[in-house]
């Protein structure tokens, strides 16, 4: 009997649908990439090949500052979320404490709450409480963007890590203790390395989401601390410039590159362990 899961695809209309879907998803990006090389200020006809829009945005200090801001925000928000989120996932999976059910229920709420609600809530909180209470010490700045980003990054890291913890052998730490490791050593030398692939992929996810966020950042950033999505948005209101196209292409390629590296690292460690 033929296995039904591996028979050759024989319906031409199925491949037509597939091609159509991929076109729907990726054609706009191809168009964007195409016009980023167009030697014309407007996205109309093809006027010849050029690198000048790439050179233009690389010489644009406002874009570079915004890019630096975005990277700073993503780096710190993910860094904080990685540590706290991992500890949160471990705590929820391995310990019993009063109020655990409530904690578990609310820990992943930021994934469900609409960004706009988080953005408004954070802004209202900062304006009505944090800024007056701190006597103006806390101001809308990159710092406030980072703290707002930590909120959702934390949930993403925690959810990815806790999935991995639930797959782990529950006796791993006991085995480490049994072999003479103190609880700290057991955590550092056994649990953390076992969780590392999950922590890295959770961080990558959170990093890309933080880099991508426009809504929360635009509510919580102060003057002069625009992130890249904010800068792009402010420019696009006066018409799409080809240098933005060029910037977008670079962004797509660099995030793609980042993911390729992460995938490769993951693949290498999986092949090592699960071949």
């Amino acid at each position: 009997m033929n296995s039904t899961s591996n028979r050759p695809l024989s319906w031409p209309w199925l491949s037509l649908i597939a091609i159509g879907l991929f076109g729907f998803m990726y054609f706009p990006i191809l168009v964007l990439a195409f016009y980023s090389f167009n030697d014309s200020k407007y996205s109309t006809g093809w006027k010849g090949f050029t690198w000048k829009w790439y050179v233009a945005f690389l010489n644009d200090s406002r874009i570079l500052t915004a890019l630096a801001n975005s990277l700073i925000v993503a780096f710190f928000a993910v860094g904080i979320a990685a540590v706290v989120g991992t500890l949160m996932a471990v705590g929820l999976a391995r310990y019993r404490f009063p109020g655990k059910q409530v904690y578990q229920g609310t820990a992943y709420l930021p994934l469900i709450i609409p960004d706009i609600a988080i953005a408004v809530a954070t802004l209202v909180f900062l304006a009505a409480i944090a800024i007056p209470v701190s006597g103006g010490l806390i101001q809308l700045s990159l710092g406030t963007v980072i703290s707002a980003h930590v909120v959702f990054c934390l949930s993403y890291v925690a959810i990815v890590v806790s999935t991995r913890i639930n797959d782990l052998n529950p006796h791993l730490e006991e085995a480490a203790l049994d072999l003479g490791a103190t609880p700290t050593q057991a955590f550092m030398q056994v649990l953390l390395p076992e969780l590392m692939p999950a922590i890295v992929s959770g961080c990558l996810l959170a990093f890309v989401l933080s880099l991508d966020d426009f809504l929360i950042a635009s509510f919580t950033a102060g003057g002069g601390s625009s992130t890249l999505p904010m800068e792009i948005f402010s420019r696009i209101r006066t018409g799409v410039k080809p240098d933005i196209n060029a910037l977008s292409v670079v962004l797509i390629l660099s995030t793609g590159f980042l993911f390729a590296i992460a995938e490769y690292l993951r693949y290498r460690s999986e092949r090592k362990r699960f071949s």
């Binding site: 052998n169 006796h171 085995a175 056994v190 390395p193 076992e194 362990r273």
Partner: peptide, 10 residues
């Protein structure tokens, strides 16, 4: 020696 072995997979 644990029933599930509990070997460290890394």
């Amino acid at each position: 020696v644990f029933q599930s072995y509990a070997l460290f997979s890394h």
